[in-house]
Amino acid sequence: MNPASVRDVAQRAGVSVGTVSNVLNRPDKVAEATVARVIAAIDELGFIRNDAARQLRAGHSKTIGLVVLDVRNPFFTDVARGAEDQAAQAGLTVILGNSDENSERESAYLDLFEEQRVHGVLISPFGDITARLARLRDRGIPAVLVDRSSGDSAFSSVSVDDIAGGRLAVEHLVAQGRTRIAFIGGPMEIRQVTDRLAGARLAIADHPSSSLEVVEVDALSVLAGRAAGVAIVERAPADRPDAIFAANDLVAMGVLQALMMQAEVRVPQEIALIGYDDIDFASAAVVPLSSIRQPSALIGRTAVEILLEQADDPATPPRQVVFEPELVVRESTR
């Protein structure tokens, strides 16, 4: 059986389709007796209002599209939670898409959000999508970059100074007396990874007696970190780094598993280890993990605030909000 339509409700109540629409959207303009007849007809027929179609006719929906690099990363879960809390205050909902660090999946989500005429898009992009976001803006859909700055300031962004964060991590390792440092991260198409590496290189440049080795991985995941860690423990002890800066905490946790379980390398006595993001699991690791903290929920909330400003007034100039990272020291580097 086909679902009941507005026309069916109108026929059952003995009113026009326009009157049913007024009851649904502007009941104060309809006589109480008529409202009662229409409501009774709705109940009898089991009519379900098609809010999606109504919103599309109005030009936009009450949803915000959010695309993240890896939904398995608790950092992005916290960002999404912050965005969701802020959106709810404006009567909006957030639809989460996981690009999985894949440009085709990222593009597919943006196509979907454009078709659905979402209220706006928040995205932690994989690579350069400036042209794609410009097309959304031309269609009346504002976009805000999340956890990444806008290089040319063409779009609003909410991020953390990852260059400063990378520098902070390596300066901490050097201060602990470490001189052979390895950076483990990738893919290099991810701006956050290259910025953190750039910061690490700046720190090393200030300490000529120290060196920085780059170990590139194909994903910011525990498995990728574990594989990189296994490759390191297979080296002769003298050829191993004495400290590792992982591009995020998931990579760091994989490295920690390899060091302690594969070769019983002592952390931090033989190799100090620091991650990035300060996810909840960092403090609960078998050796509590030092990390560079980002205000994840605040990033999500701020991104929604800016998005709503731009949706209300498309002429609003782009804003770049950059938070400062914070060093959190735990046993893995002490």
Rank of each mutant, 00 (worst) to 15 (best):
P288Q: 13
T333Y: 13
L259T: 00
E101S: 04
P208I: 05
A164D: 07
L289F: 12
F323W: 12
E264C: 08
G151H: 14
R81Q: 11
D280C: 11
D8V: 05
T130P: 08
R49A: 09
R301V: 04
A4P: 03
Q269W: 07
V230K: 07
P314D: 13
G225V: 01
L122D: 09
I163M: 13
A228V: 02
T316Y: 10
P318C: 13
D249K: 05
H207I: 05
R37N: 08
A131G: 13
A10K: 04
D195P: 08
I184Q: 00
R266K: 12
A258L: 09
T63N: 12
L173F: 05
R72K: 14
R235C: 07
E234W: 13
D162T: 00
Q89V: 09
E114N: 10
S296M: 09
Q89H: 11
R81K: 11
V214E: 15
S150R: 02
F113M: 07
A205I: 02
A182N: 00
Q55L: 15
T194W: 06
L66K: 02
Y276V: 02
F281G: 01
A131I: 01
I181E: 00
V160A: 08
G185A: 07
G97T: 03
R81A: 10
L202G: 09
Q294D: 10
T63V: 09
F113S: 00
A303R: 00
V71N: 12
G18V: 08
I244Q: 01
L66A: 11
S156T: 04
R49I: 07
A13R: 02
G18E: 12
G97W: 03
S150Y: 04
I232A: 04
L212Q: 10
G165T: 02
G18R: 13
I163P: 02
T77Q: 12
L307W: 00
